[in-house]
């Protein structure tokens, strides 16, 4: 299958290893991965912070870039949720019905990595090897907007060498919320401290998730506490093998 990668702006800038891992993983599974360098960002931060017209401009750019793709895969639940769920609404709020139709059509072809693997391709064992103790945090947008369900867990359970430890109160938000973490830093930190307490109680070496924005938040707290538990994107675990270690 010809897969267009939407790397997302955050991964492009701060977490290129996640992108490399996604490419390596999909290629290992026999797919052709393409990266259109015209891509930038999905506009989530702008829409969620109230900058609607700026978000619409970014969204237009995104649709122009990806409209002709066969299938688009992104290693981020919240960006895919933005595209599939909020693009049509934002276009509707702007009263642009043509854009709305284009958004709905494109939304059907855009997938978050784990839902793409499990629900779309029907694969659970991706041939990964990761000999570590790991706990998994289900990110809110993947869980409640995309409803990826236990797709990520199915993938993790098939990773050789991996010990999966259940995260207590896993469905609780980590407190990131994009600009929420800056506008309401105290509440955000209060939520994060509970999440970290739960992560540390699992005594894992790594906390994984399908979204580097949440992991950046969780990781920022873990690092500040010198905790020794590291944040690792799921793609990096799934791409790791005996021969090549990603994280």
């Amino acid at each position: 299958m010809k897969i267009d990668l939407f790397i997302t702006c955050l991964n492009d800038a701060l977490f290129p290893r996640t992108g490399e891992a996604t490419v390596r993983l999909l290629e290992r599974l026999g797919h052709e991965v393409r990266f259109n360098p015209a891509q930038t960002c999905c506009g989530q931060m702008h829409l969620n912070t109230g900058y609607r017209s700026e978000a619409i401009e970014i969204m237009r750019h995104f649709i122009d870039v990806f409209e002709s793709s066969e299938v688009v895969v992104a290693p981020s639940g919240s960006c895919v949720a933005m595209i599939r769920d909020l693009y049509p609404r934002a276009a509707e709020w702007a009263g642009d019905h043509e854009l709305q139709e284009r958004a709905v059509a494109l939304g059907k072809k855009v997938f978050e990595l784990t839902e793409f693997l499990v629900n779309h391709l029907g694969i659970e064992d991706v041939g990964a090897y990761y000999p570590h103790r790991v706990t998994y945090h289900p990110t809110c947008h993947a869980a409640r907007v995309l409803r990826v369900g236990d797709a990520p867990l199915k993938l993790l359970r098939k990773v050789r060498g991996l010990t999966l430890v259940e995260l207590p109160l896993a469905d609780q938000c980590c407190g990131f919320g994009g600009t929420f973490s800056i506008k309401n830093p105290e509440t955000s930190t209060a939520m994060l401290s509970d999440k970290i307490q739960n992560i540390l109680s699992t005594r894992s070496e790594a906390c994984t998730a399908g979204d580097n924005s949440c992991l950046m938040h969780i990781g920022g707290g873990l690092s500040r506490l010198q905790s020794g538990t590291r944040p690792v994107h799921l793609a990096e675990i799934l791409a790791s093998t005996e021969d090549e270690v990603f994280a």
């Binding site: 506008k183 830093p185 707290g221």
Partner: peptide
Amino acid sequence: GWTDARDMPAVPKQSFREW
């Protein structure tokens, strides 16, 4: 507000698009 309680990763030497 972010760094009062959390670290922030540095921008790495190479972006994904450069890679």
